[in-house]
């Protein structure tokens, strides 16, 4: 649905060059919620702005719903007609909502419909529908200044959906909200994704956002995508940085010297198997559980457990093989410093 190829953005000011995007390849499939996570300055904000050409990339291509936007004419601050048409089919929500203070909630939602050239009756009907969809039908005549942050963002979302877009871009939409409001806004995005088949590309600096709504994620650092993929795949990938961030085990014990410490990750059905007792019975090993956690990620049950087996790595090759046969992901933790080998 959204594809970027070798996307580069270089800012030049007073002879100095700053590379905000450095060859970013992104592939967002239709109907998924895709999260880009990274610290501030990682280039994620530039990336999402390049998707609807609010920033024109220095090189590379952006394709949204089969249309190559980078091929459409227009300068940085003045888009050509074709690009403006294309943008009407891409909704965008912002961190600071960007609602017009001079307009009521309903008039704010009507703004994109005015731009599209709908008449008054059509606009009213559509705006009422959209406000109903985001649960703000009773606030239509209020001004944004009379709303809470969460309500403002709901208006922002209703407005972004006015053009019946297939794609919704979310630029840190929950970063200015408290945790509870964040959850409700994320739930709304998830609902819209399911109900309308909306493809959502969101950027955030919070792992929790990725964990609660995303199907896929990309980690950005220094203008590059360091890691990307479906969350379930990432969790099954050994030494995945995103997986570790998504599902930190925290301060679990590191075991005694000389023993082997394993980190076992299990997803979906495998979490129902009593593999610990099976392992103990079959191989007569004493298993010491150092720590364990279970979470819902991308709508699936995911668990991680750190266990200690007596003896070095060589002594435990067979039990480790057994665990891997069960469909479990097993990382061997170096007993000396606790890092993954």
């Amino acid at each position: 649905m959204i594809t970027t190829k070798d996307l580069t953005k270089v800012y030049r000011s007073r002879g100095r060059e700053v590379t905000a995007l450095d060859g970013v390849d992104l592939h967002v499939r239709e109907g998924e919620v895709y999260g880009v996570v990274g610290t501030s300055g990682a280039g994620k904000s530039t990336l999402i702005r390049c998707v609807n050409m609010l920033e024109r990339p220095t090189s590379g291509t952006v394709t949204v719903d089969g249309l190559e936007l980078t091929g459409l004419p227009g300068q940085e601050h003045r888009a050509g007609r074709d690009l403006r048409e294309a943008r009407r089919r891409i909704g965008m929500v912002f961190q600071h909502f960007n609602l017009l203070a001079s307009r009521t909630v309903q008039q704010n939602v009507e703004l994109p419909l005015e731009i599209m050239g709908l008449d008054r009756t059509q606009r009213r009907r559509k705006a009422a529908e959209l406000l109903d969809l985001v649960g703000l039908a009773d606030k239509a005549r209020n001004y944004p200044s009379q709303l809470s942050g969460g309500q403002k963002q709901r208006v922002g979302i209703a407005r972004a959906l006015a053009g019946d877009p297939k794609v919704l871009l979310s630029d840190e939409a929950t970063s200015a909200l408290d945790p509870e409001t964040t959850r409700s806004i994320l739930a709304l995005l998830r609902d819209l994704n399911r109900q309308l088949g909306l493809t959502v590309l969101l950027i955030t600096h919070e792992m929790d956002v990725i964990k609660s709504v995303c199907d896929s994620a990309a980690l950005m650092r220094g203008g590059k995508v360091v890691e990307s993929g479906e969350l379930t795949e990432l969790l099954a990938t050994e030494n995945s940085e995103l997986a570790r961030e998504l599902f930190p085990l925290g301060e679990f014990g590191h075991g005694r010297p000389g023993n082997t410490v394993l980190e076992i990750t299990f997803q979906g059905d495998t979490s129902a198997q009593p593999f610990v007792s099976q392992l103990a019975r079959t191989y007569q090993v004493d298993i010491n559980i150092l720590g364990a956690a279970v979470e819902h990620i991308a709508g699936r049950m995911v668990g991680r457990m750190r266990v200690e087996l007596p003896g070095g790595h060589q002594d435990n090759v067979v039990p480790i093989g057994f665990l891997r046969e069960q469909g479990l992901q097993v990382d061997v933790v170096n007993e000396a410093n606790g890092a993954v080998a």
Partner: peptide, 9 residues
């Protein structure tokens, strides 16, 4: 920026 993202000139 919001208006640009809606396709406004």
């Amino acid at each position: 920026e919001a208006v640009h993202s809606m396709g406004g000139g």
